[in-house]
Design a protein around this nucleic acid. Structure first.
Length: 475
RNA sequence: GUGGCCAUAGCUCAGUUGGUUAGAGCAUCGGUUUGUGGUACCGAGGGUCGUGGGUUCGAGCCCCAUUGGCCACCCCA
Protein backbone atom coordinates (compact mmCIF):
# COMPACT_ATOMS: atom_id res chain seq x y z
CA UNK A 1 0.00 0.00 0.00
CA UNK A 2 1.13 3.47 -0.84
CA UNK A 3 1.55 5.93 1.98
CA UNK A 4 -1.46 8.08 2.71
CA UNK A 5 -1.17 11.26 0.67
CA UNK A 6 -1.50 14.65 2.31
CA UNK A 7 -1.04 18.33 1.59
CA UNK A 8 1.36 20.79 3.20
CA UNK A 9 0.42 22.39 6.47
CA UNK A 10 -1.74 25.47 6.14
CA UNK A 11 -3.04 24.62 2.67
CA UNK A 12 -6.47 23.35 1.66
CA UNK A 13 -8.20 21.36 -1.07
CA UNK A 14 -11.46 22.72 -2.40
CA UNK A 15 -14.08 20.30 -3.69
CA UNK A 16 -16.69 21.23 -6.31
CA UNK A 17 -19.31 22.46 -3.84
CA UNK A 18 -16.68 24.50 -2.04
CA UNK A 19 -15.36 25.96 -5.27
CA UNK A 20 -18.83 27.03 -6.34
CA UNK A 21 -19.11 28.86 -3.04
CA UNK A 22 -15.66 30.42 -3.32
CA UNK A 23 -16.38 31.55 -6.86
CA UNK A 24 -19.49 33.26 -5.56
CA UNK A 25 -17.21 35.32 -3.29
CA UNK A 26 -14.67 36.04 -6.01
CA UNK A 27 -17.40 36.97 -8.48
CA UNK A 28 -19.03 39.34 -6.01
CA UNK A 29 -15.76 41.11 -5.26
CA UNK A 30 -14.76 41.22 -8.92
CA UNK A 31 -18.09 42.75 -9.89
CA UNK A 32 -17.67 45.53 -7.33
CA UNK A 33 -14.10 46.20 -8.45
CA UNK A 34 -15.24 46.51 -12.04
CA UNK A 35 -18.19 48.71 -11.14
CA UNK A 36 -15.77 51.25 -9.65
CA UNK A 37 -13.55 51.25 -12.72
CA UNK A 38 -10.70 48.98 -11.65
CA UNK A 39 -8.92 46.86 -14.27
CA UNK A 40 -7.40 43.43 -13.72
CA UNK A 41 -3.72 42.51 -13.78
CA UNK A 42 -1.79 39.41 -12.77
CA UNK A 43 1.79 39.05 -11.63
CA UNK A 44 3.96 35.93 -11.22
CA UNK A 45 3.69 33.72 -8.15
CA UNK A 46 7.38 34.32 -7.53
CA UNK A 47 9.32 37.53 -7.32
CA UNK A 48 12.99 38.25 -6.95
CA UNK A 49 13.71 37.97 -3.26
CA UNK A 50 15.11 41.50 -3.07
CA UNK A 51 11.82 42.88 -4.40
CA UNK A 52 10.03 41.59 -1.33
CA UNK A 53 12.49 41.97 1.54
CA UNK A 54 12.37 45.03 3.76
CA UNK A 55 8.77 45.95 2.94
CA UNK A 56 6.82 44.11 5.58
CA UNK A 57 8.73 44.82 8.77
CA UNK A 58 11.04 42.47 10.64
CA UNK A 59 8.30 39.96 11.44
CA UNK A 60 6.95 40.04 7.91
CA UNK A 61 10.32 39.41 6.31
CA UNK A 62 10.70 36.22 8.32
CA UNK A 63 7.45 34.92 6.85
CA UNK A 64 8.48 35.26 3.20
CA UNK A 65 8.66 31.88 1.50
CA UNK A 66 12.08 31.61 -0.10
CA UNK A 67 12.50 29.40 -3.14
CA UNK A 68 15.67 27.37 -2.92
CA UNK A 69 17.99 27.38 -5.87
CA UNK A 70 18.05 24.30 -8.08
CA UNK A 71 21.77 24.66 -8.49
CA UNK A 72 23.89 22.42 -6.33
CA UNK A 73 26.48 24.21 -4.27
CA UNK A 74 28.58 21.06 -4.24
CA UNK A 75 28.92 21.15 -8.02
CA UNK A 76 30.39 24.61 -7.93
CA UNK A 77 32.57 24.02 -4.88
CA UNK A 78 33.34 20.26 -4.85
CA UNK A 79 35.73 20.62 -1.95
CA UNK A 80 32.87 21.63 0.32
CA UNK A 81 31.85 17.98 0.27
CA UNK A 82 34.60 17.32 2.75
CA UNK A 83 33.61 20.07 5.14
CA UNK A 84 32.46 18.45 8.35
CA UNK A 85 30.38 21.33 9.58
CA UNK A 86 28.26 21.22 6.44
CA UNK A 87 27.85 17.48 6.74
CA UNK A 88 26.24 17.87 10.11
CA UNK A 89 23.65 20.19 8.60
CA UNK A 90 23.06 18.44 5.26
CA UNK A 91 23.26 14.67 5.25
CA UNK A 92 22.71 14.43 1.53
CA UNK A 93 24.68 15.26 -1.59
CA UNK A 94 22.70 18.27 -2.59
CA UNK A 95 23.13 21.66 -0.97
CA UNK A 96 21.11 24.40 -2.64
CA UNK A 97 22.83 27.62 -3.65
CA UNK A 98 21.56 30.88 -2.13
CA UNK A 99 17.91 31.50 -2.87
CA UNK A 100 17.22 34.54 -4.97
CA UNK A 101 13.49 34.10 -5.57
CA UNK A 102 10.53 34.00 -3.26
CA UNK A 103 6.78 33.46 -3.36
CA UNK A 104 4.80 36.67 -3.17
CA UNK A 105 3.80 37.71 0.33
CA UNK A 106 1.05 40.09 -0.72
CA UNK A 107 -0.21 41.74 -3.90
CA UNK A 108 0.65 45.35 -3.06
CA UNK A 109 4.43 45.16 -3.32
CA UNK A 110 4.37 43.19 -6.60
CA UNK A 111 1.92 45.81 -7.84
CA UNK A 112 4.31 48.64 -6.95
CA UNK A 113 7.04 46.76 -8.79
CA UNK A 114 4.72 46.33 -11.76
CA UNK A 115 3.87 50.03 -11.84
CA UNK A 116 7.52 51.04 -11.88
CA UNK A 117 8.36 48.53 -14.61
CA UNK A 118 5.42 49.51 -16.79
CA UNK A 119 5.27 53.21 -15.94
CA UNK A 120 5.47 54.29 -19.58
CA UNK A 121 2.48 52.17 -20.62
CA UNK A 122 0.28 53.24 -17.72
CA UNK A 123 -2.09 56.21 -17.66
CA UNK A 124 -2.30 57.66 -14.17
CA UNK A 125 -4.20 57.56 -11.93
CA UNK A 126 -4.09 53.81 -12.43
CA UNK A 127 -6.83 51.70 -10.86
CA UNK A 128 -6.09 48.01 -10.86
CA UNK A 129 -7.54 44.94 -9.21
CA UNK A 130 -5.79 41.63 -8.68
CA UNK A 131 -7.13 38.34 -7.35
CA UNK A 132 -4.37 35.81 -6.74
CA UNK A 133 -2.97 33.57 -4.03
CA UNK A 134 -0.19 34.71 -1.72
CA UNK A 135 2.02 32.64 0.57
CA UNK A 136 3.26 33.16 4.10
CA UNK A 137 5.51 30.84 6.10
CA UNK A 138 3.38 31.43 9.17
CA UNK A 139 2.16 28.99 11.79
CA UNK A 140 -1.36 28.04 10.71
CA UNK A 141 -4.28 28.41 13.09
CA UNK A 142 -7.87 29.53 12.96
CA UNK A 143 -8.33 31.86 9.98
CA UNK A 144 -4.64 31.71 9.19
CA UNK A 145 -3.28 29.84 6.19
CA UNK A 146 0.04 29.46 4.45
CA UNK A 147 -1.62 29.83 1.10
CA UNK A 148 -4.59 32.14 0.69
CA UNK A 149 -6.23 34.40 -1.85
CA UNK A 150 -6.15 38.14 -1.64
CA UNK A 151 -8.44 40.34 -3.69
CA UNK A 152 -6.78 43.72 -4.04
CA UNK A 153 -7.96 47.02 -5.46
CA UNK A 154 -5.47 49.89 -5.56
CA UNK A 155 -5.35 53.38 -7.07
CA UNK A 156 -1.89 54.70 -7.73
CA UNK A 157 -0.93 58.19 -8.87
CA UNK A 158 -3.64 60.11 -7.06
CA UNK A 159 -3.49 61.95 -3.74
CA UNK A 160 -7.21 62.62 -3.65
CA UNK A 161 -9.06 61.50 -0.55
CA UNK A 162 -11.96 60.58 -2.80
CA UNK A 163 -10.10 57.30 -3.30
CA UNK A 164 -10.27 56.55 0.41
CA UNK A 165 -14.01 57.25 0.35
CA UNK A 166 -14.52 55.11 -2.72
CA UNK A 167 -12.63 52.18 -1.23
CA UNK A 168 -14.83 52.41 1.86
CA UNK A 169 -17.91 52.29 -0.35
CA UNK A 170 -16.52 49.26 -2.13
CA UNK A 171 -16.01 47.45 1.16
CA UNK A 172 -19.59 48.33 2.05
CA UNK A 173 -20.84 47.09 -1.33
CA UNK A 174 -19.02 43.77 -1.10
CA UNK A 175 -20.16 42.90 2.41
CA UNK A 176 -23.68 44.17 1.81
CA UNK A 177 -23.94 41.82 -1.16
CA UNK A 178 -22.43 38.95 0.82
CA UNK A 179 -24.77 39.74 3.69
CA UNK A 180 -21.99 39.97 6.28
CA UNK A 181 -22.38 42.70 8.90
CA UNK A 182 -19.03 44.44 9.31
CA UNK A 183 -17.30 47.32 11.01
CA UNK A 184 -14.76 49.26 8.98
CA UNK A 185 -12.12 50.71 11.26
CA UNK A 186 -10.16 53.64 9.92
CA UNK A 187 -7.13 55.46 11.26
CA UNK A 188 -4.30 57.50 9.81
CA UNK A 189 -0.60 56.83 10.18
CA UNK A 190 0.04 60.57 10.24
CA UNK A 191 -1.84 60.80 13.50
CA UNK A 192 0.33 58.04 14.89
CA UNK A 193 3.48 59.71 13.56
CA UNK A 194 2.39 62.96 15.18
CA UNK A 195 1.83 61.21 18.48
CA UNK A 196 5.28 59.65 18.31
CA UNK A 197 6.73 63.05 17.51
CA UNK A 198 5.02 64.73 20.45
CA UNK A 199 6.24 62.19 22.97
CA UNK A 200 9.73 62.62 21.58
CA UNK A 201 10.05 59.23 19.91
CA UNK A 202 9.54 60.03 16.24
CA UNK A 203 11.66 57.07 15.20
CA UNK A 204 9.61 54.66 17.29
CA UNK A 205 6.25 55.10 15.61
CA UNK A 206 6.07 51.41 14.68
CA UNK A 207 6.77 50.38 18.27
CA UNK A 208 4.01 52.63 19.56
CA UNK A 209 1.64 51.55 16.84
CA UNK A 210 2.02 47.79 17.37
CA UNK A 211 1.71 48.22 21.14
CA UNK A 212 -1.40 50.39 21.15
CA UNK A 213 -2.97 48.18 18.49
CA UNK A 214 -3.53 45.70 21.33
CA UNK A 215 -5.58 48.08 23.46
CA UNK A 216 -8.79 46.11 23.11
CA UNK A 217 -6.94 42.83 23.61
CA UNK A 218 -4.67 43.35 26.62
CA UNK A 219 -6.02 46.65 27.98
CA UNK A 220 -4.16 49.75 29.08
CA UNK A 221 -2.12 47.91 31.68
CA UNK A 222 -0.79 45.45 29.11
CA UNK A 223 -0.08 48.15 26.57
CA UNK A 224 1.76 50.29 29.09
CA UNK A 225 3.81 47.30 30.15
CA UNK A 226 4.78 46.60 26.57
CA UNK A 227 5.71 50.23 25.98
CA UNK A 228 7.79 50.20 29.11
CA UNK A 229 9.61 47.09 27.91
CA UNK A 230 10.33 48.81 24.64
CA UNK A 231 12.10 51.59 26.53
CA UNK A 232 9.48 54.28 26.89
CA UNK A 233 9.63 56.42 30.03
CA UNK A 234 6.70 56.73 32.41
CA UNK A 235 6.27 60.30 31.32
CA UNK A 236 5.99 59.26 27.68
CA UNK A 237 3.58 56.47 28.49
CA UNK A 238 1.37 58.83 30.44
CA UNK A 239 1.32 61.24 27.56
CA UNK A 240 0.42 58.46 25.18
CA UNK A 241 -2.36 57.16 27.37
CA UNK A 242 -3.79 60.65 27.58
CA UNK A 243 -4.35 60.97 23.86
CA UNK A 244 -5.81 57.49 23.48
CA UNK A 245 -8.20 58.05 26.35
CA UNK A 246 -9.32 61.33 24.81
CA UNK A 247 -11.25 59.51 22.12
CA UNK A 248 -12.75 56.79 24.29
CA UNK A 249 -16.53 56.43 24.43
CA UNK A 250 -16.49 57.30 28.13
CA UNK A 251 -15.16 60.76 27.41
CA UNK A 252 -16.97 61.70 24.25
CA UNK A 253 -20.34 60.29 25.27
CA UNK A 254 -20.20 62.07 28.61
CA UNK A 255 -22.08 65.21 29.64
CA UNK A 256 -22.52 67.62 26.79
CA UNK A 257 -22.74 64.97 24.08
CA UNK A 258 -25.19 66.37 21.56
CA UNK A 259 -25.74 63.31 19.38
CA UNK A 260 -23.29 64.38 16.71
CA UNK A 261 -21.47 61.66 14.80
CA UNK A 262 -19.05 59.97 17.19
CA UNK A 263 -16.24 59.83 14.69
CA UNK A 264 -16.41 63.54 13.99
CA UNK A 265 -16.54 64.33 17.71
CA UNK A 266 -13.43 62.25 18.26
CA UNK A 267 -11.55 63.95 15.46
CA UNK A 268 -12.61 67.40 16.61
CA UNK A 269 -11.37 66.58 20.09
CA UNK A 270 -8.01 65.63 18.70
CA UNK A 271 -7.85 68.71 16.50
CA UNK A 272 -8.34 70.90 19.56
CA UNK A 273 -6.13 68.83 21.86
CA UNK A 274 -3.84 71.17 23.78
CA UNK A 275 -0.79 69.03 23.74
CA UNK A 276 -1.04 67.43 20.34
CA UNK A 277 -2.25 70.29 18.15
CA UNK A 278 1.30 71.54 17.98
CA UNK A 279 2.29 68.69 15.69
CA UNK A 280 1.77 69.55 12.05
CA UNK A 281 1.68 65.99 10.83
CA UNK A 282 -0.77 65.03 13.56
CA UNK A 283 -3.17 67.79 12.50
CA UNK A 284 -2.75 66.83 8.87
CA UNK A 285 -3.82 63.29 9.66
CA UNK A 286 -6.80 64.52 11.64
CA UNK A 287 -7.88 66.84 8.83
CA UNK A 288 -7.58 64.09 6.24
CA UNK A 289 -9.75 61.80 8.28
CA UNK A 290 -12.30 64.55 8.93
CA UNK A 291 -12.63 65.06 5.19
CA UNK A 292 -12.98 61.31 4.58
CA UNK A 293 -15.54 60.79 7.33
CA UNK A 294 -17.61 63.84 6.37
CA UNK A 295 -17.94 62.59 2.79
CA UNK A 296 -18.73 59.07 3.89
CA UNK A 297 -21.40 60.35 6.24
CA UNK A 298 -22.87 62.60 3.53
CA UNK A 299 -23.03 59.81 1.00
CA UNK A 300 -24.06 57.15 3.50
CA UNK A 301 -23.19 53.47 3.52
CA UNK A 302 -25.65 50.64 2.98
CA UNK A 303 -24.86 48.24 5.79
CA UNK A 304 -21.31 48.69 7.10
CA UNK A 305 -20.40 50.72 10.18
CA UNK A 306 -17.40 53.00 9.98
CA UNK A 307 -15.40 53.81 13.03
CA UNK A 308 -12.41 56.00 13.65
CA UNK A 309 -10.11 54.02 15.89
CA UNK A 310 -6.96 55.76 17.02
CA UNK A 311 -5.53 52.47 18.29
CA UNK A 312 -5.67 50.84 14.86
CA UNK A 313 -2.09 50.42 13.67
CA UNK A 314 -1.55 47.58 11.15
CA UNK A 315 1.88 46.11 10.93
CA UNK A 316 2.84 46.62 7.32
CA UNK A 317 5.63 49.13 7.21
CA UNK A 318 4.77 50.85 3.96
CA UNK A 319 1.57 52.59 5.05
CA UNK A 320 1.85 56.37 5.50
CA UNK A 321 -1.70 57.76 5.47
CA UNK A 322 -5.14 56.26 5.97
CA UNK A 323 -5.31 52.68 7.20
CA UNK A 324 -8.31 50.38 7.05
CA UNK A 325 -9.29 47.20 8.78
CA UNK A 326 -12.56 45.30 8.46
CA UNK A 327 -13.95 42.78 10.90
CA UNK A 328 -17.12 40.71 10.81
CA UNK A 329 -19.64 41.55 13.54
CA UNK A 330 -21.00 38.01 13.57
CA UNK A 331 -19.26 34.66 13.87
CA UNK A 332 -16.24 33.49 15.81
CA UNK A 333 -13.51 34.78 13.51
CA UNK A 334 -11.98 37.77 15.28
CA UNK A 335 -9.19 38.54 12.85
CA UNK A 336 -9.61 41.01 10.03
CA UNK A 337 -11.20 39.94 6.76
CA UNK A 338 -10.09 42.98 4.80
CA UNK A 339 -7.36 45.57 5.26
CA UNK A 340 -5.56 48.32 3.47
CA UNK A 341 -4.22 51.81 3.49
CA UNK A 342 -2.33 54.58 1.75
CA UNK A 343 1.34 54.27 0.92
CA UNK A 344 3.08 57.41 -0.27
CA UNK A 345 6.33 56.01 -1.48
CA UNK A 346 6.20 52.31 -2.14
CA UNK A 347 7.31 52.79 -5.74
CA UNK A 348 10.12 55.07 -4.62
CA UNK A 349 12.06 52.01 -3.43
CA UNK A 350 11.98 50.76 -7.02
CA UNK A 351 13.01 54.10 -8.49
CA UNK A 352 9.75 55.94 -9.11
CA UNK A 353 9.28 58.62 -6.42
CA UNK A 354 6.25 60.81 -5.70
CA UNK A 355 3.69 58.22 -6.61
CA UNK A 356 1.13 57.88 -3.87
CA UNK A 357 -1.17 54.90 -3.82
CA UNK A 358 -4.02 53.62 -1.72
CA UNK A 359 -5.68 50.24 -1.72
CA UNK A 360 -7.58 47.52 0.06
CA UNK A 361 -7.23 43.77 0.19
CA UNK A 362 -10.05 41.31 0.81
CA UNK A 363 -8.97 38.07 2.48
CA UNK A 364 -11.03 35.63 0.43
CA UNK A 365 -10.25 32.62 2.59
CA UNK A 366 -11.32 34.28 5.80
CA UNK A 367 -14.46 35.63 4.15
CA UNK A 368 -15.13 32.09 2.95
CA UNK A 369 -14.75 30.81 6.52
CA UNK A 370 -17.14 33.46 7.84
CA UNK A 371 -19.75 32.70 5.17
CA UNK A 372 -19.44 28.99 5.87
CA UNK A 373 -19.88 29.43 9.60
CA UNK A 374 -22.89 31.70 9.21
CA UNK A 375 -24.22 29.74 6.23
CA UNK A 376 -24.82 32.86 4.19
CA UNK A 377 -24.91 31.35 0.72
CA UNK A 378 -27.96 32.02 -1.42
CA UNK A 379 -29.69 28.91 -2.80
CA UNK A 380 -28.66 29.74 -6.34
CA UNK A 381 -25.03 29.16 -5.46
CA UNK A 382 -25.26 25.37 -5.45
CA UNK A 383 -26.90 24.61 -8.80
CA UNK A 384 -24.64 23.85 -11.73
CA UNK A 385 -26.21 21.33 -14.11
CA UNK A 386 -29.84 22.11 -14.81
CA UNK A 387 -30.86 19.14 -16.92
CA UNK A 388 -29.80 15.49 -17.05
CA UNK A 389 -30.74 13.03 -19.79
CA UNK A 390 -31.58 9.64 -18.31
CA UNK A 391 -31.56 6.79 -20.79
CA UNK A 392 -31.98 3.01 -20.88
CA UNK A 393 -29.37 1.92 -23.37
CA UNK A 394 -27.24 2.67 -26.36
CA UNK A 395 -30.16 3.37 -28.74
CA UNK A 396 -31.75 5.86 -26.37
CA UNK A 397 -28.40 7.47 -25.71
CA UNK A 398 -27.75 7.92 -29.43
CA UNK A 399 -31.23 9.40 -29.81
CA UNK A 400 -30.49 11.90 -27.02
CA UNK A 401 -27.07 13.11 -28.11
CA UNK A 402 -28.37 15.54 -30.80
CA UNK A 403 -31.04 16.75 -28.36
CA UNK A 404 -28.39 17.34 -25.71
CA UNK A 405 -26.36 19.39 -28.20
CA UNK A 406 -29.46 21.44 -28.99
CA UNK A 407 -30.16 22.12 -25.32
CA UNK A 408 -26.57 23.15 -24.75
CA UNK A 409 -26.63 25.49 -27.75
CA UNK A 410 -29.61 27.16 -26.12
CA UNK A 411 -27.34 27.93 -23.17
CA UNK A 412 -28.78 25.45 -20.69
CA UNK A 413 -26.23 23.60 -18.53
CA UNK A 414 -26.96 19.98 -19.26
CA UNK A 415 -25.42 16.52 -19.41
CA UNK A 416 -26.16 12.91 -20.22
CA UNK A 417 -25.27 9.95 -18.04
CA UNK A 418 -22.26 8.54 -19.89
CA UNK A 419 -22.64 4.86 -19.08
CA UNK A 420 -25.46 3.66 -21.31
CA UNK A 421 -26.08 0.50 -19.30
CA UNK A 422 -26.36 2.18 -15.93
CA UNK A 423 -29.51 1.41 -14.00
CA UNK A 424 -32.12 4.05 -13.65
CA UNK A 425 -31.71 4.24 -9.91
CA UNK A 426 -28.05 4.95 -10.39
CA UNK A 427 -28.79 7.75 -12.86
CA UNK A 428 -31.47 9.28 -10.66
CA UNK A 429 -29.20 9.20 -7.63
CA UNK A 430 -26.54 10.89 -9.69
CA UNK A 431 -28.96 13.71 -10.52
CA UNK A 432 -30.04 13.95 -6.93
CA UNK A 433 -26.49 14.07 -5.63
CA UNK A 434 -25.51 16.82 -8.05
CA UNK A 435 -28.69 18.73 -7.22
CA UNK A 436 -29.72 18.75 -10.87
CA UNK A 437 -33.15 20.39 -11.04
CA UNK A 438 -34.61 18.49 -14.01
CA UNK A 439 -34.16 15.11 -15.67
CA UNK A 440 -35.42 14.00 -19.05
CA UNK A 441 -36.26 10.30 -19.18
CA UNK A 442 -36.04 8.75 -22.61
CA UNK A 443 -37.09 5.18 -23.47
CA UNK A 444 -38.84 3.42 -26.34
CA UNK A 445 -42.16 5.24 -25.91
CA UNK A 446 -40.53 8.65 -25.89
CA UNK A 447 -38.43 7.87 -28.95
CA UNK A 448 -41.52 6.75 -30.85
CA UNK A 449 -43.65 9.77 -30.00
CA UNK A 450 -41.05 12.51 -29.51
CA UNK A 451 -42.88 13.35 -26.29
CA UNK A 452 -40.14 13.16 -23.66
CA UNK A 453 -40.68 12.65 -19.96
CA UNK A 454 -39.50 15.71 -18.03
CA UNK A 455 -39.24 15.31 -14.30
CA UNK A 456 -38.92 18.15 -11.84
CA UNK A 457 -36.57 16.81 -9.18
CA UNK A 458 -37.72 19.22 -6.52
CA UNK A 459 -41.46 18.64 -6.76
CA UNK A 460 -41.25 15.09 -8.14
CA UNK A 461 -43.85 15.91 -10.78
CA UNK A 462 -43.36 14.85 -14.37
CA UNK A 463 -44.92 15.58 -17.74
CA UNK A 464 -44.71 14.48 -21.39
CA UNK A 465 -43.23 17.29 -23.40
CA UNK A 466 -41.36 17.94 -26.67
CA UNK A 467 -37.71 18.98 -26.58
CA UNK A 468 -38.46 22.47 -27.96
CA UNK A 469 -40.84 23.11 -25.09
CA UNK A 470 -38.23 21.91 -22.60
CA UNK A 471 -35.73 24.39 -23.95
CA UNK A 472 -38.32 27.15 -23.78
CA UNK A 473 -39.19 26.20 -20.24
CA UNK A 474 -35.66 25.97 -18.83
CA UNK A 475 -34.08 28.84 -20.70
C1' G B 1 10.34 31.31 17.18
C1' U B 2 7.39 30.14 22.22
C1' G B 3 3.45 27.49 24.90
C1' G B 4 -1.12 24.17 25.55
C1' C B 5 -4.22 20.12 23.65
C1' C B 6 -4.73 15.98 20.34
C1' A B 7 -3.60 11.56 16.93
C1' U B 8 -8.23 4.55 16.13
C1' A B 9 -11.98 3.22 8.75
C1' G B 10 -12.79 8.47 3.60
C1' C B 11 -15.35 11.71 7.88
C1' U B 12 -17.10 12.11 13.32
C1' C B 13 -15.93 9.27 17.27
C1' A B 14 -16.41 4.66 21.05
C1' G B 15 -12.90 1.10 22.84
C1' U B 16 -13.48 -1.09 30.64
C1' U B 17 -7.94 -1.58 35.95
C1' G B 18 -3.29 -3.59 29.82
C1' G B 19 -6.19 -9.68 28.04
C1' U B 20 -8.46 -13.71 22.19
C1' U B 21 -10.37 -12.09 15.74
C1' A B 22 -10.57 -3.47 17.18
C1' G B 23 -16.46 -1.34 16.99
C1' A B 24 -20.63 2.33 15.78
C1' G B 25 -22.83 6.32 12.97
C1' C B 26 -22.22 8.92 8.47
C1' A B 27 -20.18 8.40 3.56
C1' U B 28 -19.05 4.83 -0.63
C1' C B 29 -20.52 0.49 -3.49
C1' G B 30 -24.15 -3.54 -4.30
C1' G B 31 -29.14 -5.59 -3.43
C1' U B 32 -34.86 -5.23 -1.98
C1' U B 33 -37.37 -9.32 -9.56
C1' U B 34 -34.70 -5.77 -14.67
C1' G B 35 -38.92 2.73 -16.59
C1' U B 36 -38.03 6.63 -11.38
C1' G B 37 -33.80 9.91 -6.86
C1' G B 38 -33.85 12.35 -2.07
C1' U B 39 -37.06 8.61 3.51
C1' A B 40 -36.95 2.61 4.78
C1' C B 41 -34.78 -2.55 4.94
C1' C B 42 -30.57 -6.16 3.79
C1' G B 43 -25.48 -6.73 2.59
C1' A B 44 -20.24 -5.64 1.17
C1' G B 45 -15.56 -3.34 0.90
C1' G B 46 -12.42 -0.33 3.86
C1' G B 47 -7.84 0.06 9.79
C1' U B 48 0.16 -2.74 10.60
C1' C B 49 -4.73 1.96 16.06
C1' G B 50 0.39 8.63 12.93
C1' U B 51 5.73 6.60 12.95
C1' G B 52 10.01 4.38 15.67
C1' G B 53 11.70 2.33 20.04
C1' G B 54 10.89 0.59 25.27
C1' U B 55 8.21 -1.93 29.64
C1' U B 56 5.25 -6.66 29.80
C1' C B 57 3.69 -13.51 29.10
C1' G B 58 0.57 -9.91 26.47
C1' A B 59 0.08 -2.75 24.35
C1' G B 60 -5.06 0.86 20.69
C1' C B 61 -4.43 1.64 26.22
C1' C B 62 1.68 2.56 30.12
C1' C B 63 6.89 5.16 29.17
C1' C B 64 10.42 7.75 25.73
C1' A B 65 11.39 9.87 21.09
C1' U B 66 9.68 11.63 16.45
C1' U B 67 6.20 13.42 12.81
C1' G B 68 1.66 15.62 11.79
C1' G B 69 -2.80 18.36 13.21
C1' C B 70 -5.68 21.92 16.11
C1' C B 71 -5.53 26.17 19.38
C1' A B 72 -3.08 30.43 21.69
C1' C B 73 1.17 34.11 21.73
C1' C B 74 3.98 37.05 18.04
C1' C B 75 2.31 38.98 13.65
C1' C B 76 -1.28 39.15 9.87
C1' A B 77 -5.97 38.61 5.01
Amino acid sequence: MAQKPSIPKGTRDFSPQEMVRRNYIFDTIKLVFQRYGYLPIETPAMENLETLTGKYGDEGDKLIYKIRSNKNLLEKYPTLRDCNCLKTVYNYDWIPMASDKALRYDLTVPFARYVVQHQNEITFPFKRYQIQPVWRADNPQKGRYREFFQCDADVIGSNSLINEVELTQMIDDVFTTLNVPVVIKINNRKILSGIAEIVGAADKMIDIATAIDKYDKIGDVGVNKELSEKGFSNEQIEKLEQVFLATSDRIILGPGYDGKDKNLVRLELLREHQEYRSSEIFLEGVKELEAVFKTIIDLGLTSANVEFDITLARGLNYYTGAIFEVKANKGTLTSSICGGGRYDDLTGIFGLPNMSGVGISFGADRIYDVLNELDLYPDTVSASTKLLFVTFGKDEQNYCLPLLAKVRKAGINSEIYPDANAKMKKQMSYADDKKISFVVIVGGDEMASGELTLKNMTSGKQEKIKIEKIIEKLK
